[in-house]
Write a protein that binds this DNA or RNA. Sequence first.
DNA 1: CCTTGACCTTCCAACGGTTGGAAGCTCCAT
DNA 2: ATGGAGCTTCCAACCGTTGGAAGGTCAAGG
Lengths: 154, 154
Amino acid sequence: MNIGDVARASGVSAKMIRYYETIGLIPPAERSESGYRNYDDNDVHRLRFIRRARDLGFTVEQMADLLALWRDRSRASSEVKKIALQQVAVLERKAEELKAMSRTLKHLAAHCHGDERPDCPILDDLADAAADPGKAPEPARFGPGGIDPVRVRS
Amino acid sequence: MNIGDVARASGVSAKMIRYYETIGLIPPAERSESGYRNYDDNDVHRLRFIRRARDLGFTVEQMADLLALWRDRSRASSEVKKIALQQVAVLERKAEELKAMSRTLKHLAAHCHGDERPDCPILDDLADAAADPGKAPEPARFGPGGIDPVRVRS
DNA sequence: CCTTGACCTTCCAACGGTTGGAAGCTCCAT
DNA sequence: ATGGAGCTTCCAACCGTTGGAAGGTCAAGG
């Protein structure tokens, strides 16, 4: 199988497959005479593994850990569990932060007339809310020393 | 005020203030004779605005929009509301995705013994779950054509 | 006055994960 | 044999942020 085939079969783009190879997440693929990468079902399997782990929010580093555990089945499942539960905690915390942000914004938007009047409290809050960190008018606080912002992929 | 003062007062690092200046999010600061940037309370105010908007998950582009609206108070509040509600929708969607990921992982971890036995279903699921996209054994699905992964800041 | 240390300046690089493009080669079908 | 799809490598950009190096400036203390 060529890289395009595995890409389609695994859901990981050819670009990313090459990238994962360069960073060492996957071992270098065998090459044909002409230099094309050759893959088999095992590789597809592993790439599906990666794809799924990535979609579950694991970092490349964590994926490397999981792949190592997967490769060596004699290892303790407790390690896998530990990694997974760590990830659960991270995901839940991030979800809570997003919810809090959403709540704040929704609250602010609710007081916005939505007509041509220029007195929308959203801007005032954005401008004034952080004036006295610790005394927030709204539920969600993200002041100094607060919660990490969240980066999302468009 | 020097850049360090505004940085402390606004919660935006000096590095980021300079960066925001280079990308045009904020106008170039006035300089002293020696080349130091000079700021006043207004700048602190604006940077707090930015800080808060950033923490609420707005992109730099959206922040630029909001700042423009803030600057020109005669504009309709409906625009502000629109931007805010768009952001609410994005945040809620992302929060749901995170919850779904978390649910899947927690479910998988619950079937992991956590002892020395190597048969942890997490790895098997990661390896096999995506085998037939569309027929998932677990609640959360992130197959091809599915939901965007989430990037988080460590 | 001179040194010290904290502050400022610019520039350059890297992070992580992904995508895009350019230039050139190979494979397969017509 | 010619075209087009697919492969190769390399290089750059995206986002927001952080770090460092090399150098100039300020205020205080000896």
